[in-house]
């Protein structure tokens, strides 16, 4: 992300002598109207509206009948929401760690000047082109206990083999995790590989002269140098995790029972199915708060660090 402001003095091509500054650069301003509307009305306006109405007791239709923090109290005492949060936490932590490890390892392996690099990269990245719905349905089929992986292994002769994550409330989130990592790790591999390619060849020469092994060089020298790339990857994975919705809908639809519910699904259920808008607004505001909690330290690292460095 680069929202740095370049000095714009050189690009100020205002015709001299126009009295009203409002008409300066008029075509550009007119052309930017869709952007301005999107930014102000949809993004700022829409978000503010949702936050404000999360303090109301809106049911089927939004009503400005303010009830303080009632919706939030109800939200945090709803078991379904607690399950959603817990699932998101497990999914989030596991997927962050695993995606980073897999992404970096694959990138490092591809970086070893190997043959067929393009083929391997194509294979690792193609799931990213697919819809979460496609991913979810495919893995639902592979993890099907009667016809899928479990049954195949049993047919091979291992009769007691049990691998049925999607039908067990305790493990269902890991079944979703398998699919999520399958889809998302290729992207991180790609970003990591770009980062590795950006590292100076001299670092490798110096490490070789000092007699440091390849693995050790990656872990002790290259990895710390990749900090910006890793932070970008983390932000990317994190923003994807909070949006987690389609995959769950396709793979388990929140089941068995409510065992694989996630916050994004909670919001949509309350807004568009249960006709309890206030509850949906409160839940979505909590999602917004969690994004802010993730984004602020990152923005601080990214932009605060740049000023110092």
């Amino acid at each position: 992300m680069s929202v740095t402001t370049e000095p714009s003095a050189a690009r100020d091509h205002a015709p001299v002598g126009k009295p009203n500054p409002l008409f300066k650069n008029l075509s550009a301003k007119l052309a930017s109207i869709p952007m301005i509307i999107t930014a102000l009305v949809v993004f700022v306006g829409g978000t503010t509206w949702t936050v404000v109405y999360s303090f109301t007791n809106s049911k089927l239709l939004p009503r400005a009948n303010f009830v303080g923090l009632d919706q939030y109290e109800r939200l945090w005492s709803t078991r379904r929401w607690m399950v959603s949060i817990e699932n998101l936490a497990i999914y989030g932590i596991c997927s962050m760690i695993l995606t980073l490890i897999i992404g970096f390892t694959l990138a490092a392996l591809l970086d070893r000047k190997i043959r067929f690099e393009n083929t391997f990269r194509t294979i690792f990245l193609y799931p990213f082109a697919l819809s979460f719905i496609v991913t979810g349905l495919t893995w639902q089929w592979i993890l099907n206990p009667d016809f899928g992986l479990q049954n195949v292994v049993r047919n091979w002769g291992w009769e007691s083999f049990a691998f049925n994550p999607l039908n067990d409330p305790n493990t269902v989130i890991f079944g979703i995790l398998i699919a999520g990592i399958w889809q998302g790790s290729g992207l991180i591999m790609c970003i990591m590989l770009a980062g590795l390619r950006g590292i100076d060849e001299d670092i490798w020469k110096a490490a070789r002269v000092d007699g440091i092994g390849t693995v050790k060089t990656y872990l002790r020298i290259i990895l710390p140098m990749m900090r910006p790339v890793i932070i970008t990857s983390l932000v990317l994975i994190a923003s994807g995790i909070i949006k987690l919705y389609d995959l769950v809908v396709a793979q388990t639809n929140g089941g068995p029972g409510i065992a694989s519910e996630v916050p994004a699904k909670y919001v949509i259920n309350y807004m568009f199915r249960a006709q309890n808008l206030g509850q949906g607004f409160a839940a979505s505001t909590m999602m917004l708060v969690s994004v802010i909690i993730i984004l602020i330290p990152w923005a601080y690292l990214e932009f605060g660090g740049r000023k110092r460095g």
Binding site: M1, V3, T5, A28, S32, M35, I36, T38, A39, L40, V42, F43, V44, G45, G46, T47, W49, T50, V51, Y53, P62, S239, I242, K243, A264, V267, I268, M271, L277, G280, F281, A283, S284, T285, M287, L288, V291, L295
Partner: peptide, 24 residues
Amino acid sequence: GSETFFTILIIGAFIPYQTMLYPI
């Protein structure tokens, strides 16, 4: 103000869609 709108736009990309669904 063009850079301000742009910054809002980019920050908007990180806002969960759920907070904008109903206003839309």
